[in-house]
Structure formats: structure tokens, C-alpha cells
């Protein structure tokens, strides 16, 4: 109980900012009635969200579709990133090639490939969106996991050698646990990227029941409350995916400084 109170007190400034911000927004829109057309008050966005939850623009099924695309892309990209990282970590000479090339390729704005993925896998298909998501997710996961597998403390390796530990034992007892926080960091970046990939893919065409399409089409018919409602739902999906990884961190790496409650920054 005391702990809950302490947490509440610690977060009080943030809560005040949130509540105050929304209140101010509502007050300004109502009081001045300027730009209300493009930036509606929070209350009318909430109303639009309720009205279109399953009918009209069908925000709920749209959110489910987008989540499916982003989730599929996240899983595919993460698996691919893991596979490449493990393969490359195994061979130091491959690492010398893959890291610089990976960094260079990562500097490419991958969203530019979104229309191409639609052409390849069909713009109506979920797979085209998953492909873009996976491409975006791949690099942060691959590079982070590779760093985690290779940035092992030299003394830890010497310790394993003093115990005559096998290569396999070094991998399972040292390298993989060492890489786990790195993987989760990559996954945190990946959750947002997977959603960006899905939404960008939807901008370039796709089934109407998808959040990216709802945003584009409601904006084109000037139903901006719906647009904002859809944006709010996309944001909520992004935050929920991010929080899911944070929760996984608490379970998987309770010993890590970032979970121990030391300053994140």
C-alpha cells in the first residue's frame, strides 16, 4: 500500500501533465472554437470512436487487422534477425562484413520499399504489409543481438575456459543470457517500427478495414474526429505492444539495471 502511494507520488507530475493537457485542449477548442474542424475537442473524438467502433469506419476490426499485420511482421523480422545474428556471431570474419554492410543498409529509408512490397505480394494482402514490417524490424534486432552475443566480458570467457566449458556451454550459459537484454532493446524499437511498416504499407493501398486506410479515407472525407480516433487507436496499439515488451523485461531480466529502476536515461 505504501509502495503504491510512493509510485503514485513519483508519477504525480506526469499524471498532472496528462490530465491538465487534455483539459486545456478541450477548454481551448470549446472556448475559442478555432480550428475545431481540423483539431476536434477530445470529447468529440471520444464520441466518434464510440460511434465507429464496429460500424461505419469499423475501427475495432481495422485495429485487429493492423495489429495482425504488425505482429506478423514483428515475429518474422525478429526471427530473421535472430537467425542472421546467431549465424554471423559464429563466424568472426562474417561479422567484419555484415556489420558495416548492415549499418549502411540500415541508413536506407526502407519505407521507400513499401509500394514495391505491395506490388510483389499484392496490395490487398496482409503479407505485403508484414513484409515491410519485417524488413523494418530486422535490422535493429539483428544488430542488437549480434552486439549482445559478441560483447561478452573477457573474464567470463576465461572463467568458462578454466572450467573446461564447451563451445555450446559458452553459448547457452554466457552469450545467450548476455544477449537477452540487447534482444529486448531491439524488440522495443521493433514494436514501433512494425506498426509504422504496417501503416505505411496501408497508405500505399490495401483493404479498407485497416487503421492506415481509415486514417487516409476519413481525412479525405473531412471526418477528422474519425481520423483522430483512428490515430488514437494506432497510438494505443503501439503503447500496448511496447508495454508488453516492458513486462517481458521484468520477467526475463529482473537483474538488469534498466529493470532495477535505475534511471532509464
Amino acid at each position: 500500500m505504501k509502495r503504491a502511494f510512493a509510485i503514485l507520488r513519483h508519477n504525480a507530475p506526469a499524471i498532472i501533465v496528462l490530465v491538465g493537457g487534455i483539459a486545456l485542449w478541450e477548454a481551448v477548442i470549446r472556448g475559442l472554437a478555432i480550428r475545431a474542424f481540423i483539431l476536434p475537442a477530445p470529447s468529440s473524438i471520444a464520441r466518434a470512436l464510440g460511434e465507429n467502433w464496429t460500424t461505419g469506419y469499423q475501427i475495432l476490426p481495422a485495429a485487429q487487422a493492423t495489429l495482425q499485420e504488425a505482429g506478423g511482421g514483428l515475429i518474422a523480422g525478429a526471427l530473421l534477425g535472430l537467425a542472421v545474428a546467431f549465424a554471423v556471431a559464429r563466424y568472426p570474419s562474417a561479422r567484419d562484413i555484415v556489420l558495416p554492410v548492415g549499418i549502411a543498409v540500415n541508413a536506407i529509408p526502407i519505407v521507400a520499399f513499401a509500394p514495391l512490397a505491395n506490388q510483389w505480394f499484392g496490395s490487398q494482402s496482409v503479407y505485403s504489409k508484414m513484409a515491410i514490417s519485417a524488413a523494418l524490424v530486422f535490422f535493429p534486432i539483428m544488430i542488437n543481438v549480434l552486439r549482445g552475443l559478441t560483447s561478452v566480458n573477457a573474464s567470463s570467457l576465461e572463467l568458462m575456459r578454466s572450467y573446461a566449458g564447451s563451445e555450446m556451454a559458452v553459448l547457452t550459459k554466457v552469450r545467450i543470457p548476455n544477449a537477452l537484454p540487447f534482444f529486448l532493446t531491439g524488440l522495443k524499437i521493433g514494436t514501433t517500427l512494425s506498426l509504422i511498416g504496417a501503416v505505411v504499407g496501408e497508405y500505399f493501398g490495401g483493404l479498407n478495414v485497416a487503421l492506415g486506410r481509415v486514417v487516409v479515407e476519413s481525412a479525405s472525407t473531412l471526418s477528422f474526429e474519425v481520423t483522430w480516433a483512428a490515430i488514437a487507436v494506432v497510438s494505443a496499439v503501439g503503447i500496448v505492444m511496447y508495454l508488453a515488451v516492458l513486462a517481458a523485461e521484468r520477467v526475463l531480466i529482473p537483474w538488469h539495471p534498466s529493470v532495477r529502476g535505475e534511471r532509464v536515461a
Binding site: V17, T191, Y203, A219, M241
Partner: peptide
């Protein structure tokens, strides 16, 4: 105080796919 009040939203803003906001920014 500023850190505790705003950093959570700086982090949260990153979990929002900006691309969804793009059309609205252009309209605005």
C-alpha cells in the same frame, strides 16, 4: 520535476507511429 512530468511522454511519443499522424499534420 520537468523530467518526471515530461519524459514519460517523450518515450510514449516514440511508440506512436508518426506516419499515422502525417495526414493530419498536413491538413493542420
Amino acid at each position: 520535476l520537468l523530467e518526471r512530468a515530461f519524459v514519460p511522454y517523450v518515450v510514449a511519443s516514440q511508440t506512436i507511429p508518426i506516419v499515422a499522424l502525417a495526414p493530419m499534420i498536413v491538413f493542420f
